[in-house]
């Protein structure tokens, strides 16, 4: 899935992935403050632990990514959280690869950041938890679809022989997107009810609540 191992991707794809990820991580580190660092650490731990539990599904196996929630709660900080978790997975378990660390981080974190940028303001501006849950579900589906697309693109650019099959991608990523949507909706809906301010990546970035 999103953990592409060493020896598969071409050098230009690896270099481009590493460069963009380095930029994303630099942006993340620059924007992180005392409030963001523990949040990023918690979500990195959730991503790390969640990625270790997979469910066999046909020729593949899938696991939760939590990227929709990460995008909403961390913004660009998702790059730092994903990089940390992926690096530990490579070093401790050999899942993924060291040379593919950059592109794997990009494939997972970029869709999360984009989904958070699109649906984050909508989630924060609505006063209704149910609507926030709906937006969070959409963010999760967008993040998973983005990761699927970027993984397919990485493989296709490196070697067309490795281009993922649309049928298998649908078989694996569709259930994952639905599971991610359910989890993200529950998490965001809960936070919206108990502490809506926690949904903003930065304290000062919180949007005013608009009563519908």
């Amino acid at each position: 899935m999103a953990h592409i191992p060493d020896g598969i991707l071409s050098a230009p794809v690896l270099i481009a992935g590493a460069v963009v990820t380095a930029g994303g991580v630099a942006l993340a580190l620059r924007s992180m403050d005392e409030r963001a660092i523990p949040r990023a650490a918690i979500l990195a731990a959730v991503f790390f632990a969640g990625s270790l539990v997979s469910v066999p599904m046909g020729p593949a196996s899938v696991h939760l990514l939590f990227t929709g929630v990460m995008g909403v709660l961390l913004g660009t900080g998702a790059f730092a959280a994903v990089l940390t978790a992926l690096m530990l997975q490579v070093l401790l378990f050999g899942v993924g690869g060291l040379t593919t660390l950059g592109i794997n981080t990009l494939n997972i974190a970029l869709p999360a950041v984009v989904a958070g940028a699109i649906f984050g303001p909508l989630i924060r501006s609505t006063a209704r938890p149910s609507r926030a849950s709906g937006y969070a579900a959409c963010a999760a589906v967008l993040a998973v679809a983005g990761t699927a697309g970027l993984v397919a693109l990485s493989l296709w650019l490196s070697d067309p022989a490795y281009t993922p099959a649309a049928r298998v991608m649908a078989l694996t990523y569709l259930p994952l997107a639905l599971a991610e949507a359910a989890v993200s909706a529950s998490v965001v809906g809960f936070i919206k009810r108990v502490q809506p301010d926690a949904l903003a990546p930065r304290a000062q970035a919180a949007h005013p609540v608009v009563t519908p």
Partner: peptide, 22 residues
């Protein structure tokens, strides 16, 4: 929320899977 947590726990318990490397 509770239902979602129960579902998540059930998934974790039901799956003998650990990790994700082929």
């Amino acid at each position: 929320m509770i239902r979602a947590l129960v579902l998540l726990c059930a998934l974790l318990v039901a799956s003998p899977a650990f990790a994700h490397k082929l």
